[in-house]
Simulated scan of single mutants.
Amino acid sequence: MLSAESAALIRATLPAVGGALDEITTRFYATMFAERPELLDGMFNRGNQASGAQRRALAGSIAAFAGALLADPDTRPDALLARIAHKHVAVGVTEDQYTIVHKYLFAAIVDVLGEAVTPDVAAAWDEVYWLMAGALVAQEARLYLEAQVRPGHPWRRWTVVERREETPDTASFLLRPSDGAPAPRARAGQYVSVRVRMPDGVHQLRQYSLSSAPGDETRRITVKRVRGDGAPEGEVSNLLHRTVGVGAELTLSAPFGDVVLDDGDAPLLLVSAGIGCTPMVAMLEHLAATGSARPVTVLHADRSPADHALRADTRRLIGTLPDARATFWYERDAVDEPGSRTGRMDLAGLEPAAGASVYLCGPLPFMREARAQLLRSGVPARAIRYEVFGPDLWLADAAA
């Protein structure tokens, strides 16, 4: 649905725009937040702003969308944006905010590229932007409707009814709606945004996967404290660990996320590392709660058994499923977990069941390597789904 005239101009200018996207998005965010500082209060993750992760993700999504339009100008690549739409509704993005973004983004493009942005070039990129924005607005409207929440207001108060220390750096919080009404519908694999007020008065949001089966009354999130280790520490995770106990109230969004357990009966391969185990445990709990007989293979890598959050839950659930098995890899102290392996996860020699559905979650380098090994093992790319915590830099790097 990109006009022929615009397609020609986008094709001619994409190398220049793509090469300058990092500078463009840097200027875009700096100017927008300088003039609209309220957007940093409860909308944007300032940790991702400081690290540049959000900037890279935005640049990658624009480049990927423009490239997809050029590959097939008669089709709007809506599927490419599904993950972004879920992230947007989980933080309360509304249709009017696309006009704000347009204003500052296009001002940044002109500032960076100067005279190269002729009126015709500007009009062509304007067409790309509004095609992308229109697709996102439509998807987000549908997601708000399905979640039965008003656009921009996905929030609800929840009470912590149990806190459990999983590892020295990981805690689980069992929550119940504070108003006593049933919990909203969720699917195994989805996440919620947690909205907290920081000591400086600014609200910050973080997404955490549900780590329990979607029930009618409670939800569980499992939060790993992000320590500094040479980089800024996670301000929200550390606040939750320090201050939230039984009886505390948290503000959570409705559940969102497009990487969810399918409803079929194909074999499942759940591959995770670190805190990436959380959506996998939710999937296992759902399978156990529904009496599923699907064949399930769980593969997990961690630093040590002591660092492996929800390890006991995983073992328990594997034991309740009729055709399930698990293999764990640990960088150290593997002897403390019977049957585990020492070192990093190695999928060489893996023989996945025919037609298996594969789910990946963990640090991005881990997922890239695991996916490459799975492809070499004969797993088709279409069968592999992945969840990224934070901005989707996999997409950004692929578009670079």
Rank of each mutant, 00 (worst) to 15 (best):
A273G: 13
A273R: 05
A273W: 05
G274D: 06
I275N: 05
G276K: 07
G276S: 09
C277Q: 15
C277M: 14
T278S: 11
T278E: 09
P279C: 11
P279T: 07
P279G: 11
P279N: 03
P279E: 07
M280K: 10
M280I: 15
M280A: 13
V281M: 06
V281Q: 03
V281K: 05
A282I: 10
A282S: 15
A282H: 09
M283W: 07
M283T: 08
L284R: 04
L284V: 10
E285C: 03
E285W: 06
E285F: 00
E285T: 04
E285P: 10
H286R: 14
H286T: 15
H286E: 15
H286D: 15
L287K: 04
L287S: 07
A288S: 13
A289I: 01
A289H: 02
A289W: 00
A289M: 06
A289S: 13
A289V: 04
A289Y: 01
T290P: 04
T290A: 08
T290E: 07
G291K: 04
G291H: 04
G291Q: 11
S292L: 12
S292R: 06
S292I: 12
A293H: 14
A293F: 00
A293G: 15
R294H: 08
R294T: 07
R294D: 10
V296C: 13
V296T: 14
V296Q: 11
V296I: 13
T297W: 00
T297V: 13
T297P: 08
T297Q: 14
T297M: 12
T297Y: 00
V298N: 08
V298H: 11
V298M: 14
L299V: 06
L299R: 09
H300S: 05
H300D: 05
A301N: 03
A301H: 01
A301G: 14
A301V: 01
A301F: 03
D302S: 14
D302N: 15
D302V: 03
D302T: 03
D302P: 12
D302L: 01
S304Q: 04
S304E: 11
S304Y: 01
S304N: 08
S304I: 08
P305H: 03
P305W: 04
P305N: 07
P305D: 09
P305Y: 02
A306V: 05
A306P: 02
D307L: 08
H308Y: 01
H308N: 13
H308E: 09
H308V: 03
H308S: 14
H308L: 08
